[in-house]
């Protein structure tokens, strides 16, 4: 990586699962970067490839049943390591130290049989073998930092004695035990209720400043994106359909799918009479992807594209500015007027 601010650089990432019915291409040709102090969100429906992307950054996908190609560069101090080509042991050394991850369901992500203190200390000891005293001190420090009262008492308790929000705090503490520079948060607030969700997001933002981390947040919740993200990548059926700053995505969406997502967010300003708009149809099966644009069968703007173009080929990512790119056959000049969602309402 040339840019010293870059922490993570994903280039041409392809993730596929060979199955008896054919190859499932979960992620196709993904490019993404993450800089120091920045939050990048990956947004999409279930099956769009968000989680697969995050797991492959950690090297946590099943090696035997998954084909990964491309490049995932991770900064580790002065070194740069390519997770895809580096060996198992090298990647393992990165996990929890240079790159950490928190998961969707804090209820099941902590081991039910071990005390919180043990599980946190373990995360430290893996990368600092033998330093038991430091592990203990660090455990209490981190628990305090993520806002768990009476850390010395709570460290001796088991996960089932914590509430959902508290468990997610514990997960965050565990992820940050070794000062990682990259934090991947895979739907960190999906299993939590809204007030706790806001607390966790605020906590993540605070910790980001303190640890100078880059956060890659995976979510399907545009509310979360609006609260926390600087840049957004929208994925559909394994492909990037739009990438840009949060403002671009919310106020100037350029891909019909992004527009659909924005329409389906409930708004408090919406009139009593009007109904919530949803995207018609279902996400396609990744085994039998349509030959053209994967979103074409569900696209409400298809009449605006040159006839037949959507079925013929997958549009390329284009944009007037390389910081905001999108995939659509409708001429870019026409899109702004068609997609005027955020601005008008």
């Amino acid at each position: 990586m040339d840019n010293p601010n870059q922490l993570l650089k994903i280039s041409n990432l392809q993730v596929a699962f060979p199955t008896d019915d054919g190859e499932v291409r979960a992620v196709d040709n993904l490019n993404l970067t993450l800089n120091i102090g920045e939050t990048v969100a990956i947004v999409g429906e279930s099956g769009s490839g968000k989680t697969v992307t995050s797991l492959s950054v950690m090297g946590l996908h099943n090696m035997r049943t998954t084909k990964v190609s491309g490049e995932i560069l991770v900064r580790d101090g002065d070194e740069t390591i390519d997770v895809v080509s580096a060996g198992m042991e090298k990647v393992r050394g990165l996990r929890g130290r240079a790159v950490s991850m928190i998961f969707q369901d804090p209820m099941s992500s902590l081991h039910p049989y071990y005390r919180i203190g043990n599980q946190l200390g373990e995360a430290f000891l893996v990368h600092n073998p033998g330093k038991k005293k430091e592990a203990k001190a660090r455990t209490l420090e981190m628990l305090e930092l993520v806002g768990i009262p009476q850390p010395d008492k709570r460290a001796n308790e088991y996960p089932h004695q914590f509430s959902g929000g508290m468990r997610q705090r514990v997960m965050i503490a565990m992820a940050l035990m070794n000062n990682p520079k990259v934090l991947i948060a895979d739907e960190p607030t999906t299993a939590l209720d809204v007030t706790v969700q806001a607390q966790i997001l605020t906590l993540l933002k605070d910790l980001q400043k303190e640890f100078k981390m880059g956060i890659l947040i995976i979510t399907h919740d545009l509310g979360v994106v609006a609260q926390i993200a600087d840049r957004v990548s929208v994925m559909y059926a394994g492909n990037l359909v739009e990438q840009g700053s949060a403002d671009d995505i919310f106020y100037n969406p350029m891909a019909p799918y992004t527009v659909g997502l924005l329409h389906s967010v409930p708004r408090i300003t919406i009139g009593k009479k009007s109904r919530l708009q949803s995207i018609p149809g279902q996400p396609p099966s990744l085994i039998s992807l349509p030959s053209g644009c994967a979103f074409a069968p569900r696209c409400t703007y298809i009449a605006n594209a040159p006839a037949g173009s959507c079925d013929a080929s997958l549009p390329v990512l284009t944009g007037t500015d390389s910081s905001h790119v999108s995939r659509c056959h409708i001429p870019e000049a026409n899109r702004a007027a068609l997609f005027s969602v955020g601005k008008a309402k």
Binding site: R92, S108, H111, A123
Partner: peptide
């Protein structure tokens, strides 16, 4: 296949 095993791997445990 449990989530906490994935967590254990994510910590970098062998």
């Amino acid at each position: 296949g449990e989530d906490y095993i994935r967590t254990a791997r994510a910590k970098g445990l062998s």
